[in-house]
């Protein structure tokens, strides 16, 4: 917006003054953006500095230690069991992603393309779930899953998460299939493809980018899930990374270097995924919301 105006030819003095004012605004803007970026990054820097202090440090300072204790990360991985915690999270996330992705794709296709009675109403029922807090379902899940013997197993989190992830996934995949021109599936049908062949051979291949985004978001949300994992897996041996961290912080909050090392360990996978696939994450979270 401040980039325009070059075409006009005001008197020299006015132009100079305006340019100077614009430069001032630019510096001010840069400053604000720099402050915003630093505000996001500084907490990580502080945590990183704390993570490489000697583990007997009671009060880590904001300074580079004389000798960085890189072995804190290894210790957090093994003796503080963050490796095992992350394995649990990985099992759950990798269980949720294919099941939820498949269900959401099929249902999204059904609601977008196949002629279902009352598909609008069905869709509204699914979408309502987007606003339902986990608090509303976690207590009955705890008591109702007990008799089936899946409480304290990974399934106790995988199955409810697949259900809870349906609203977003169905809305996402439905929007994708609606964006595919009807003429494409019509052409397939005229060529003699039945509804199943049309889906698997023609429509499914178009869904690859949308599915990639969905899979990444599902992985992220499953990895980060806290409330369900905390309540439905109470067995310390199967704790996930977030719930492990949550209990660690309550019990060993004083061992700041190890706690900080563990924190950095459990955020590493999602940060790496985000950095590699940020376009997917940002567009998924923004468009998914707007649609």
């Amino acid at each position: 917006m401040s980039g325009g105006g070059g075409g006009r030819a005001p008197r020299a003095g006015v132009g100079l003054r305006r340019r100077r004012r614009r430069a001032g605004r630019d510096v001010f803007g840069t400053l604000i953006l720099a402050v915003a970026a630093v505000t996001v990054l500084v907490p990580f820097a502080a945590v990183f500095l704390a993570a490489i202090q000697p583990t007997d440090t009671l009060v880590p300072t904001l300074s580079w230690p004389k000798e960085p204790h890189w072995e804190n990360f290894a210790e957090a991985w093994t003796s503080a069991r963050f490796g095992a915690l992350m394995r649990s999270s990985a099992v759950i996330a990798l269980g949720v992603v294919p099941i939820a992705g498949l269900c959401a794709t099929l249902a999204g296709y059904a609601l977008a393309v196949l002629k279902l009675p009352a598909s609008g109403l069905l869709f509204a029922l699914f979408v309502a779930g987007l606003a339902l807090p986990y608090e509303a379902i976690v207590i009955p899940l705890y008591f109702d899953l007990k008799p089936f013997g899946i409480l304290n197993t990974y399934w106790a989190v995988i199955l409810p998460l697949v259900g809870a992830f349906m609203p977003f996934g169905i809305a996402w995949m439905r929007a994708h299939f609606q964006s595919i021109p009807v003429s494409i599936s019509e052409a397939a049908q005229i060529d003699g493809a039945g509804p199943l062949a049309t889906f698997f051979r023609v429509m499914l291949p178009t869904a690859r980018p949308a599915l990639t985004t969905l899979g990444l978001l599902y992985f992220l949300w499953a990895w980060n899930q806290f409330l369900l994992a905390l309540i439905l897996i109470r067995d310390p041996a199967r704790r996930t990374a977030p719930t492990g961290l949550g209990t660690f912080v309550q019990q060993y909050g004083q061992n700041v270097p190890l706690l900080c090392a563990g924190t950095l360990l459990i955020i590493t996978p999602v940060v790496l995924l985000f950095l590699f696939f940020q376009r997917h994450f940002i567009s998924g979270l923004l468009q998914g919301a707007v649609k």
């Binding site: 269900c103 099929l106 002629k115 279902l116 699914f126 379902i137 199955l159 697949v162 349906m166």
Partner: peptide, 26 residues
């Protein structure tokens, strides 16, 4: 329509069993 309902069924089952029913039970 039959195929459509078949496609919808798995998602609906998960949603019903692990979201709607627990919510109603709550």
């Amino acid at each position: 329509v039959g195929i459509g309902l078949g496609f919808l069924a798995p998602a609906a089952a998960f949603y019903l069993l692990f979201v709607i029913l627990p919510w109603l039970h709550s």
